[in-house]
Computed example of a mutant assay.
Amino acid sequence: MNDRKKDVIRETDAEAIRLAKTLIRSARFGALAVIEPGTGSPLASRVGVATDIDGTPLILVSMLSAHTGASDPRCSLLVGEPGKGDPLAHPRLTLVCRAARLERGSDEHARTERRYLNRNPKAKLYAGLGDFSIFRLELERASLNGGFGNAYLLERADLVTTAPIVEELAAGEQSALDHMNADHSDAIAVYARHFAKAAGDGWVVTGFDADGMDLALGDDICRVFFPEPLRTARELRHVLVDMAKTGRVAD
C-alpha cells in the first residue's frame, strides 16, 4: 500500500516549484483550516490572502472569528482557483503551516500590512480596526496537485526565500512600486501582455520579490517571473529595464 502511494508522487522539479510559487503568489483568497478549540475537530473558513516578500502567506483576520480562537497554531491553507470544466482538473496547493500573529507597531507588522493592502486594497476599510490582526502562516511543507497524475511534495526551502535579499528588497520595495506605477505604466503593460499573456489595460505592480513581481487589474492577478532570481536588490532596476526592452521587441 505504501509503495503504491509513493508511486503517485512525482519527483519535485523546477516546473513543480514554479507552479506552486505561482499559486501562492497569485492567490487572492484561500481555505484556512484550523483545529477547533474544545473539540479538536477541523474547522475551515475562507480568508483573504497575500504573501510576504519571502513567499510566506499572509492573512488579515478578525480576532472575533471562530478560526482565530484556536490556541493550536497548526493550520493548513488551500489555494488555487478552479476554472471552466472539472474543478479537480485545475492545480491547487495545500500548505501546512503554523500561524504567527504579528505585533502591531513592529516593523514586521508594518511591512506585511503594507503588502497585504497592496494586494487587497478593499481591506483598508477594516485593517485598522483593533480586532483585526495580521498573521504570517509559517510554512513547513506543501502538497501540490497539478491536475490528474501530477502530485508533488514540497519542502519549505522550495517555496520560501531566506537570503539577505529579502530584507534588501523590503527596504525599498514601496518606493519602487510607487515609481513604476506612477511613471512606467507602459512597461507594466509589456510585462502583463508579453510575460504573463494577460489581457486588459491598467495593470499595476503590487509586489516585488527575488523571483518576480505580482500584477493586479481590479480583481485579476497575474504573476511574472524574472528570467533569473535576483541576487541583490540593486539588480531590480536593470532586470525591469531589460524585460521591458525584450517584451517591446517581441511585440
Rank of each mutant, 00 (worst) to 15 (best):
A89N: 01
V224P: 06
A210R: 15
G172W: 10
L43P: 01
A187S: 15
T232Y: 09
D107I: 03
D242E: 15
T68I: 01
R92T: 07
D251H: 12
D209M: 13
H238M: 11
T12L: 03
A66D: 12
H67E: 08
D13A: 09
T161H: 09
Y191I: 13
L144K: 00
E36L: 02
D3Y: 09
G105H: 06
P82C: 02
A70R: 04
N150G: 03
D242V: 12
L64S: 10
W203M: 10
V49T: 07
M243E: 14
D211Q: 13
Y126V: 04
D251S: 12
L58T: 07
P82Y: 04
I221G: 09
T68M: 11
V79Y: 02
E155I: 10
A182Y: 11
L153G: 12
S106L: 03
A16L: 07
G80T: 01
Y116K: 04
S106N: 02
L88Y: 07
T162W: 01
D251C: 06
A151N: 13
V190Q: 08
D178W: 06
A210W: 02
L137W: 00
D86S: 06
G30D: 00
R193W: 05
V241E: 13
E81G: 02
D178A: 08
L117C: 01
D251R: 11
R141T: 09
T161Y: 03
L64W: 10
G38N: 13
A99R: 15
F225T: 10
D201V: 11
L230Y: 08
A110C: 08
D211N: 12
D183W: 11
L139A: 00
S133K: 12
A99I: 10
I188M: 11
R193C: 06
I9R: 04
A170I: 13
F226C: 10
V241P: 11
T112E: 09
L177S: 13
A89Y: 01
L137N: 00
A123N: 04
V249K: 12
Q174K: 15
K6F: 14
P164G: 07
D178M: 02
E140M: 03
S143C: 08
T68R: 04
